[in-house]
Design a protein around this nucleic acid. Structure first.
Length: 887
RNA sequence: GGGGGGUUAGCUCAGCGGGAGAGUCCCUGGUUUACACCCAGGUUGUCGUGGGUUCAAAUCCCUCACCCCCCA
């Protein structure tokens, strides 16, 4: 073989882009059926006009790890990517662009505007997909979908019509959340509540037929024009006699009744509540109970309408409020006004304050579907990771409300409902009608609203696979296996997908739902534009590489926990990648002129067996971690295996062993080393994909691409328990001597003389005897002897001990005997305490009677260990004491 | 008002019934056949508070305190 030269430092820019291109161009992301069960995930579709943020990065990196892992395990793996048309957000983007030219969407007209929006979509689309490629996502681009493409639009149409036919979709005049800025209704869960400092106004409403009046409290005085009653609690002794009388609405000069309703909290405010059914959900309910009219005081653009006195018409809510307060004050109706903080709903897209608004909208009745979704969970058909999210899921479903699905927008799936202007026909059709089905008139018109974006997203796990067609992909890949997403959309999306899947296909869309943590800054704050504390994933890739980002996030992704990071955090992954790179560089420097042997005929020595044992154990731990979605555990296993076992011990041993003159043995060692490197690359590939592929391609003992290579699986006959014990014993000796060297500040170039006295049952004896040169090198000794029979003189040597051995280190001028004695004394103290605890336990009859046998056995072992340590400590102490006396 | 989560080394967090851990920081010493993005070693903790269950509690149960979410 020839040496392979690697650059001195790890430079991901050299190869990441090239490798991604090779994977993609060679169809490595596309599944090939092979008889094994498939593994499928649909990517949560990012907003097509959005850009990748850390949350996306985390989410997609974890999916990539799963995809690569299962692909290497031999399952045909489909990770299906796509984007979301994001109705309000995208329309906002286009409207903002138009506004710069002084235009509104109405200037363009619907058709032109939608055309324009498609152009914007095309322009933005490449941005987010390119970003997903940059971070290494191994998703099948040949199957990429968009929520507004032809197939998915067909699925939306099918779903709408089917639900309508099943009587689950209806149109009604209800109170909805309305954003006057976006000009559309919003679903309950699209409203975000936050605390706002407002004022609480006490207003006097005079009695209609006598002197005096009552006082109502409100935070929104302008809504008084929508008042249709004032309510008191019928058990309120102060006021119950007033029920049935009337009061006058100031400024409007309108007479409204006082009614009794137990909703009113006697303790709160004045005990009187103004009832505004068209502008408050609670009042709406009361209005229903008492058959009250609904007076809407707002125009769709958020200004006050003709139902308020002329003076206020056309004002927006804030202006109207000021004017009303001023006039109330002047009229002597304002009794008081004091600061009052309360929770106010805001639009999740534009943060405008949401007004409850009475309007005609389309709804989906959710109760039945929610019940099925709840039952599927109760039957154990879906599992959340972490489990506690199941509370969120079930709580939501148990308190489900009708879903308002119409939006007064132009960008989206237009509602497939036609109205005939010549008769009253309402047509809900799979194919666009041209004439009225009832009267034959051509004077028909489609509903002008579009559907909530989530009405397409909730079909995502099957619409992307071809539903409602019975496609091959549906056959092969549905139901999918795992969904990875954030907890903020368990309501919006996850539970609705489950409901849709059960409703249309009769089964759940996936079994496992992994809920990622939120990526936050080091202060624990959400990353946001306004705080400017966000980290751009692309910047991380640029600085440290995609693997560094992936490995860092994976290492930190503890199940159910948020991730707190700053840009510096990614140095962790970068250091690891650099380590991997350099270890490889070293090994590949040493293969020059060597012959690659067949693995079958190669003899494994103890140290090799040990390394294979560690790899085998790691494979098992990773398997367990991956099956329970414990990404951080898997990453930690990889880290320790590569850095601690492979670099710190195996390569160090190799370094020494390669100094031999035995050419055949060098071939043997290099063969094993390369094989181990191959296996390590396979194990690490899901967690650090680019660097491992790059290295794999440079190894002389590999073929093909790593992404397609089989994963390392745990083999019961791959355990070398004895080698493990032996090497651990050797490591103990090395650790003990190194610690002493460091303690006494003996520089490495000062070679030591060391005498090792093992107990008869010490596991490392034979190995150390046969590898004296290696051990001597690891501890920096010139002179290293094993003294089984305790015959060598240890005069003037400093003692150290470990389990099953003592070692005596000869150092000429030990500077600080007293210090060393102090250290041993402290150690002794600790061990005596530990022994005391152990003995106490072992003499406790209750413990012996109740504890598991293993626990007792372990405690017994501990006792022996402590006794040995104490015994040695005492003897070492007296040894040092005599040394000190001699000085 | 209801629900969930958190509280472990200076910092970021694992561990979740049987000897308190990792990374980072800090300290000491190092031009080791790759790596200073490195090597060898070291210091650091009433495991938030107070109770309970248990032979045994950081770990299970309850109380309280503080912080963070979600829902009303």
């Amino acid at each position: 073989m020839q040496a392979v030269e690697l650059d001195k430092t790890y430079n991901p820019k050299e190869f990441e882009e090239r490798i991604y291109r090779e994977w993609k161009e060679n169809g490595c992301f596309e599944p090939t059926l092979n008889g094994n069960p498939t593994f499928t995930m649909v990517m949560p579709p990012p907003n097509v006009t959005g850009i990748l943020h850390m949350g996306h990065a985390l989410n997609n990196l974890l999916q990539d790890i799963l995809a690569r892992y299962w692909r290497m395990k031999g399952r045909p793996t489909l990770w299906l990517p796509g984007t979301d048309h994001a109705g309000i957000a995208t329309q906002n983007v286009v409207e903002r662009e138009l506004a710069k030219k002084g235009l509104s969407r109405h200037d363009l007209g619907r058709e032109k505007f939608v055309e324009e929006t498609w152009k914007v979509k095309e322009r933005h689309h490449g941005v987010i997909t390119k970003q997903l490629e940059k971070i290494g996502s191994s998703c099948d681009w040949s199957r990429e979908r968009f929520t507004l493409d032809e197939g998915l639009s067909g699925a939306v149409r099918e779903a709408f019509v089917t639900l309508y036919e099943r009587g689950l979709i209806y149109k009604g005049n209800y109170l909805v959340n309305y954003c006057s800025h976006c000009g559309t209704a919003l679903a309950d869960d699209e409203v975000e509540y936050s605390n706002v400092a407002g004022r609480l106004y006490d207003i006097k409403y005079p009695f209609a037929s006598k002197e005096g009046g009552i006082t109502v409290a409100t935070t929104r005085p302008e809504t008084m024009f929508g008042d249709v009653a004032v309510a008191v609690n019928p058990s309120d002794e102060r006021y119950k006699d007033l029920i049935g009388t009337t009061v006058i609405l100031p400024l409007a000069n309108k007479e409204i009744p006082i009614i009794g309703d137990s909703y009113v909290d006697i303790e709160f405010g004045t005990g009187f509540v103004k009832i505004t059914p068209a502008h408050d959900p609670n009042d709406w309910e009361i209005g229903q109970r008492h058959n009250l009219p609904q007076v809407n005081i707002l125009n769709p653009d958020g200004t006050l309408n003709e139902n308020v006195p002329l003076a206020y018409q056309g004002m927006d809510v804030q202006t109207g409020r000021k004017a009303v307060v001023k006039d109330l004050e002047e009229g002597g109706y304002l009794i008081s006004s004091k600061p009052h903080d309360h929770e106010v709903g805001h639009c999740y897209r534009c943060s405008t304050i949401i007004e409850p608004y009475l309007s005609e909208q389309w709804f989906v009745a959710m109760e039945g579907m929610a019940k099925k979704a709840l039952e599927a969970w109760e039957r154990g058909e879906i599992n959340f990771y972490a489990k506690r999210w199941e509370n969120t899921y079930s709580h939501w479903l148990k308190n489900i409300r009708p879903w308002c699905i119409s939006r007064q927008l132009w960008w989206g799936h237009r509602i497939p409902v036609w109205y005939c202007h010549d008769c009253d026909a309402v047509m809900v059709e799979r194919v666009d009608p041209t004439v009225c089905k009832k009267c034959g008139s051509t004077n028909i018109e489609q509903d002008s609203d579009v559907l909530d974006t989530w009405f397409s997203s909730w079909l995502w796990p099957f619409s992307t696979l071809g539903w409602p067609q019975k496609s091959d992909d549906m056959q092969n890949f549905f139901p999918t296996n795992t969904l990875v997403t954030g907890y903020d959309i368990i309501f919006f999306w996850v539970s609705r997908m489950i409901m849709a899947s059960l409703e249309f296909l009769g089964e759940v869309p996936y079994r496992d739902i992994y809920i990622t943590g939120l990526v936050r800054d080091k202060q624990g704050r959400k990353m946001s534009k306004s705080l400017g504390n966000g980290i751009d994933p692309l910047e991380v890739v640029d600085l440290y590489g995609a693997d560094a980002m992936k490995f860092t996030l994976c290492y930190m992704a503890a199940q159910g926990q948020d991730i707190l990071i700053d840009i510096e955090s990614f140095k962790f992954g970068s250091r690891f990648a650099n380590k991997v790179w350099n270890a490889t560089r070293f090994l590949l420097m040493n293969i020059d002129g060597r012959k690659l042997l067949s693995l079958e005929e190669v003899e494994l020595k103890v140290i090799d067996q040990w390394m294979y044992h560690q790899v085998n154990e790691a494979a098992l731990k990773i398997e367990k971690a991956m099956e329970s979605y414990r990404f951080n555990d898997a990453a930690q296993v990889i880290y320790d295996l590569f850095w601690s076992d492979f670099c710190d011990w195996y390569i160090e041993a190799t370094k020494h062993n390669l100094t031999t003159d035995d050419e055949a043995d060098k071939d043997r060692q290099v063969t094993i080393m390369l094989n181990l490197l191959d296996q390590l690359m396979r194990l690490m590939h899901p967690f650090a994909s680019f660097i491992t592929e790059e290295i794999y391609g440079k190894l002389p003992n590999t073929q093909g691409r790593l992404i397609e290579a089989p994963y390392v699986v745990y083999k019961a006959d791959g355990c070398y328990e004895e080698a493990k014990e032996i090497v651990t014993a050797m490591q103990d000796v090395v650790h003990a001597v190194r610690a002493l060297r460091s303690e006494l500040q003996i520089p490495i170039e000062r070679r030591l003389s060391v005498i090792l006295r093992p107990n008869p049952n010490f596991k490392g004896s034979l190995f150390i005897e046969e590898n004296q040169g290696l051990v001597a090198a690891l501890i920096g000794a010139d002179n290293f002897k094993i003294d089984y029979d305790a015959v060598e003189s240890i005069t003037s040597a400093v003692p150290v001990s470990g389990i099953g051995f003592e070692a005596f280190v000869f150092v000429q001028d030990v500077l600080d005997i007293a210090g060393e004695m102090k250290r041993i004394t402290n150690e002794l103290e600790k061990n005596r305490k530990a022994l005391e605890g152990s003995l106490k336990k072992l003499s406790n009859a209750q413990f012996l009677a109740n504890a598991k046998p293993e626990a007792i056995e372990k405690e017994e072992g501990k006792r022996l260990e402590f006794e040995e340590k104490i015994e040695k400590g005492e003897s070492h102490l007296s040894l040092l004491a005599s040394m000190k006396a001699q000085k």
